[in-house]
Nucleic acid binder design. Structure first.
Lengths: 220, 220
DNA sequence: GCGCGCCTCACCCGATCGGGTGAGATGCGA
DNA sequence: TCGCATCTCACCCGATCGGGTGAGGCGCGC
């Protein structure tokens, strides 16, 4: 479906039984191929050096090196290898930590063979799969993130030049720096800054920065 | 599984054929009950007043009132009703817009009856389901968001009192305001501020605010 | 007991900032 | 053509800020 070749899968789980169960799950699908197994993160990294994998199915809780750290290392050493994290419970902290470490997917261990295979294929295709509860957390996170749209009404009150100055203010430029960058005199900059503060109803440039971040004007 | 009673589902899609197809998909599962149908957002809102629904399965593209706006209204008028958004393509903008409007889930129209039912159950249970591509977008978004952990090394260099002052700086407090809130003299505050600037290697309080936001110290 | 880090406060100084006021040039639309 | 908004710049003033230096009190560990 993706590129003709079989998807090379590596397993990392400290429980022998779980590895066996996962291995069996991966036997049927003809497009999947189990190329490596490991009982912890350190072992996994070692195995991956000999057997490149497209997707690593990784348990979070493992001795020596846990799944989060292992995910980070895998992503650093093998940028092309995607990581699908497996856990017993889909706790928020673990999900976020795994995502930040570079995981592409997240599945609970009660997933069926079909779900696992589908998740591996999705992750390999550059998509992603998350356990329902984890998905809910992410959605909540995204929904909370503000949009630039919220500030647009106030922003519309500013003139073009004032918006230029605002952009400089937001990155922490002093009046002199703004003057230099926009080819203006310090006096002119001050005029614009004063206008901005008045129009936005803010007391000083510090609050302009806060306002900008709070309203999502800054992307980070 | 959730509360014994059947999950009341409402459908909103302008394509008659699609509504029929979805309706048929919902016939089999014994825990789902189709209580209302609508061809656009406005009609949906009207129907929901008579027939409360637990989950609304909503198309994005509809005449009169699109799915995004309809989602917003539904969430405003019926906070207990969850929205599962359906589209033909899982475009990023639509996903984010829908999430911001309050949608709990996101599915492409090529989903199977089982996937649809599972998604409805997940959404009703307070969880969520996303199309794989959409999930990937969200994960990317979350992964990009910085963590407080990034700043912890620098933050560790600050003394307890300096962290108190830092917290005030970040919300835009002037030295006098900080002094008042922390029961200090202006001179003491200045001492702390100077120490903070020196330790963080920043030129002024404006950059402290920027630094805090960039490192995710502020939650928003 | 002595040193060391922390918290507290003080004074001085120069730089920067924000507020107030005014004004010339330009361009756009009524 | 006559406003009107915008952009530009100027000067003044008081407030605030950041840097430098010093110092007393307190608690903790060596």
């Amino acid at each position: 479906m993706t590129d003709g070749a079989r998807i090379r899968v590596a397993l990392a789980d400290d429980q022998e039984l779980m590895r066996q169960a996962l291995g069996i799950m991966l036997e049927d699908p003809p497009d999947l191929e189990l190329v490596a197994q490991a009982a912890d993160g350190a072992e996994l990294l070692e195995r991956l050096r000999a057997h490149r994998a497209d997707v690593v199915v990784m348990d979070v809780r493992m001795p020596r090196m846990d799944g989060i750290e292992a995910t980070r290392r895998v992503r650093a050493e093998h940028p092309g290898t995607r990581v699908l994290v497996l856990t017993t419970f889909d706790l928020d902290e673990v999900v976020f930590a795994a995502i930040r470490a570079g995981a592409s997917g997240f599945l609970t261990k009660d997933a069926s063979a079909e779900e696992l295979a589908a998740a591996i294929r999705a992750v390999h295709a550059g998509d992603a799969t998350l356990a329902p509860r984890a998905t809910a957390s992410l959605i909540d996170f995204v929904a909370r993130a503000p949009t630039a749209a919220d500030a647009e009404t106030l922003l519309a009150a500013l003139t073009a030049r004032e918006r230029d100055v605002l952009a400089e203010l937001v990155v922490g430029a002093s009046n002199d720096e703004i003057a230099e960058r926009l080819y203006l005199t310090g006096n002119t900059v001050k005029t614009h800054v004063k206008a901005i503060l008045a129009k936005l109803g803010l007391p000083d440039r510090v609050h302009v920065v806060i306002w900008a971040y709070e309203h999502g004007l800054v992307v980070r």
